[in-house]
Design a protein around this nucleic acid. Structure first.
Lengths: 390, 390
DNA sequence: TTGTACGCGTTATCAC
DNA sequence: GTGATAACGCGTACAA
């Protein structure tokens, strides 16, 4: 029973509390059936928190209109009069208003943010893919959150969950080397948000994928080595659960076949892709088999370190051993001899990944998972050129 | 005037609408002064959206307790009984509940997210700083949003605003090369959120800063070159508005002074730090001045490309020209000759940046901006070693 | 110990 | 054209 007089009839006893409006008690005079609010002195107009960002409420108060009108005016809703729009925009600018994306997200149930999980930002391969993703995403009005798993399955899982609880609108992921189970992805698959895999993908989930031109790349590099007269080509690959390794190996085999050469399993070096493991394996195989005349490393970093390693031992490249890589890292242009490598078009991969995400959004309910292979191209440099073109 | 009977007195005319409770109309019988709500059939219990993530409301309904109890139980509030906690956590797990960080952020007015703006992820220097930042930040429970300005002032400004409207709890920024005005930062300085600058900082804003060991680095590199017998050392720097250039140049001068050598302004190459500009300048100065015996490039990439360039012209490094860089990029170990460079300790820089942000948070109101210089160290390699130690 | 109901900032759906 | 207010999901002072 508030001690408040009705603004209309000035009676007290007929006035009842009737909910709140924006933190202000609202009253209803039963007599006049009239709702009203008591405005206190304006001294409480100071934002309660000193660092209070201006909101549409502030704008509404300043002009003396409702928040809905402000909201609509700000987004040029056709219903709103030009005059009002102008006033609102003016005040918004004066008060340095910026919409709160958190609140927008909560209300619209979308954040216009996509999460990207990659193994390692410091690797050019991934960081350049990122750039491709960001270009397309930001053109479409999406922000990109990045996290690196550092090749740890545990971190990958944690990051995945973190993204989902942040309500990202999509998840773009390249799995860590360690990752062999995919429950963390399956769990969120039901939520219906677009998930796109790239490079190290997972086939058992029905997601869209972007793949490197692995098979073709493996083929082209090997074919090129053969064309340069190499007969005994070592291929250095990683753990067998990584699809990319298998594909590149397939390409290698295909090239041998095309050139009527027999596949010798002893020429396949299984490593864990660490530099240490790669160099050890190279040393071992070269000690065992003196006939080797080429090394195809599945990664550029591996190839580069192999070159440095072999040169230290006085081995001439490419005369004694040709070396080729995969990835077209910038370092390949710097090292001597410059490195022959397969260029997987990383920017384009990134762009394609983001595009697939956007497609999924557009297609909505009746989205069908797509798999795209980004064509790459062989870049021939000195590390394999035995027969200089005449 | 709702057509609702009071639960107590069963009268209709005395019942008034009195606000809402959780989406349900609340009524007040003026007669009995009694508040009540009409519960409809339970058939609206189905989640309205099919892909509705479970919320604490779902848990509360499932158990038949209130949302506040659920909320508190989930965060082990001491008030809640062990029994309740157990039940809540059980159901939460069953329903695969994940708190909505958007709502949490809106409610708590913090997002536990920090924004990082760097010129370019593809540069090792920045990506390794990022890793340092992420390590410290995630250990403290903060997520990291990354955006690259690609050295464009415009993009930097846009990204800054995007972060602020996303209510990041802090902003860590390294300005683009183009950036000469700082209104976009000033604007948000008032909001009170911690802003930390690194590398390319701005002095006119009272923010915390993390600086490279630029002066010392410039000094050490130059001093080392001199110790190797170099007399005419070219220093290749970037635009004068970048504080890092000035500092490294100062170090260069300091080293000359220490060794009683005169500073010759004609040996300073002003470039825009692009490869093209660097190589052109190097060519020009070497053509003009045949006495030059060393080049100190302010960036490793510049130094590396310079080496490649000079080698192509048949110049012997370090015998004819010594070359040194700054940054300790991985490529420096690969190129021949391997590159002498100053290692700025990028990881540590990143960690320090994040730490400064955390400090700011802890200190709160009475925070005093700090400036930290991360000590680096000279890494001597072949590109400058003229007098092999005997 | 548990529950109630408001506030966070915005959008959307009605109602007028 | 404009206003009122539920809803988004959660935290929390205050009430019970």
């Amino acid at each position: 029973m508030p001690r408040v007089k009705c603004i209309k009839c000035l009676k007290e006893e007929t006035v009842l509390r009737a909910g709140f409006i924006r933190g202000k008690q609202r009253f209803l005079c039963k007599e006049c059936n009239y709702h009203f609010t008591i405005y206190k002195e304006r001294d409480n107009d100071k934002p309660s928190r000193k660092n209070h960002a201006t909101t549409i409420i502030d704008i509404a108060k300043a002009i003396g209109i409702s928040v809905s009108t402000v909201s609509r005016a700000l987004k040029d809703h056709p219903d709103i009069s030009l005059q009002t729009k102008k006033a609102v925009k003016q005040v918004a600018a004066d008060l340095n208003y910026h919409p709160n994306t958190l609140a927008q997200g909560l209300s619209k149930r979308e954040t216009r943010t996509i999460g990207v999980i990659i193994p390692d930002i410091e690797t050019y391969f991934f960081s350049s893919i990122l750039t491709g993703i960001q270009n397309v995403a930001s053109a479409a009005g999406y922000k990109v959150m990045i996290s690196q798993s550092k090749e740890s399955h545990e971190t990958e899982v944690a990051n995945t969950h973190a993204f989902m609880t942040n309500w990202v609108d999509g998840l773009l992921i390249c799995h860590s080397k360690e990752t062999k189970t995919f429950d963390h992805i399956k769990l969120h698959l039901k939520s219906g948000i677009p998930i796109v895999h790239f490079d190290r993908v997972c086939d058992e989930l029905g997601t869209s994928k972007v793949l490197l031109d692995d098979l073709n790349g493996g083929f082209q590099v090997t074919d090129h080595l053969i064309s340069q007269g190499c007969k005994r080509i070592v291929i250095v690959i990683g753990p067998p659960h990584l699809n990319v390794c298998i594909k590149r190996l397939e390409g290698y085999k295909k090239a041998l076949k095309k050139n009527n050469m027999e596949f010798d399993p002893s020429l396949v070096c299984h490593t864990n892709l660490s530099i240490k493991s790669i160099l050890e394996n190279v040393d071992a195989i070269m000690k065992k088999d003196k006939s080797i005349d080429a090394i195809f490393s599945i990664s550029d970093i591996g190839a580069i370190r192999t070159i440095v390693h072999l040169k230290k031992k006085g081995i001439k490249i490419p005369e004694q051993i040709s070396v080729a890589g995969f990835g077209n890292e910038p370092m390949g242009e710097i090292i001597e001899p410059t490195l022959t490598s397969f260029n997987p078009q990383t920017y384009k991969i990134g762009e394609t990944v983001a595009q697939l995400f956007l497609n999924h959004l557009i297609e909505g309910e009746n989205h069908q998972p797509a798999t795209k292979v980004v064509k790459g191209n062989l870049i021939v440099r000195s590390s394999t050129l035995r027969n200089p073109p005449d």
